[in-house]
């Protein structure tokens, strides 16, 4: 399975990473480059500059891909209606504030049923699942999460008519959380 195709259309993902390349290079966090980039570097011999010019995708864990697939099934998630707010740079991966929200009247006929918060690089992909009700009044939840390393965080919401909304945010992590080395 192509990891990028289920997670992110190639163009937007690349745009995001390219936008952030100076920041990433400046912060010296290029250590997260994955095998594809290492291969490219070896082949071209151009070293760091080549990697910076064309950053690799952050390949999600198999666990993330399974979890995402279970939520989405054969549906097509819609971009843009769900908002996921996270810091672009998190010094401390143990405490990363997140906020997820969507415009919704939260009525019986039209509400957000649940919101999944997923990590693409943590040892456990499923970070939290929030179940909302018409008593919620507003489709918004926030808290604090752990990020093991630099990665894309993904939120998927399921509406009362089973539409799927998705939002993504890349977070550069200084010191990783999750209690793994």
């Amino acid at each position: 399975m192509n990891a990028r195709s289920i997670l992110t259309p190639p163009k937007p993902a690349r745009d995001r990473l390219v936008d952030r390349r100076e920041v990433l290079a400046g912060a010296g966090v290029l250590a997260f480059v994955i095998s594809g980039a290492r291969g490219a570097r070896a082949e071209t011999g151009a070293g760091r500059a080549a990697v910076i010019a064309d950053p690799p995708p952050l390949v999600p864990t198999a666990q993330f891909q399974d979890a995402f697939q279970k939520i989405v099934g054969s549906g097509t998630p819609i971009e843009g209606r769900l908002v996921l707010e996270l810091p672009e740079d998190a010094e401390n991966g143990n405490i990363v504030p997140y906020k997820i929200s969507a415009e919704s009247p939260m009525t019986e006929a039209d509400h957000i049923q649940r919101i999944h918060l997923l990590s693409t690089q943590n040892p456990q992909a499923s970070v939290a699942t929030f179940h909302l009700t018409t008593l919620s009044g507003k489709a918004a939840v926030s808290g604090r999460m752990r990020l093991a390393k630099t990665q894309e965080v993904v939120a998927v919401a399921v509406t009362s008519d089973n539409a799927l909304l998705v939002a993504r945010q890349v977070v550069a992590v200084g010191i990783g959380g999750c209690g793994v080395d």
């Binding site: 405490i95 970070v127 939290a128 179940h131 008593l135 808290g143």
Partner: peptide, 14 residues
Amino acid sequence: DLIFTAELGSGISA
């Protein structure tokens, strides 16, 4: 009446 449920994983901060 239920307002809200959160199922939390180990990726939630202390």
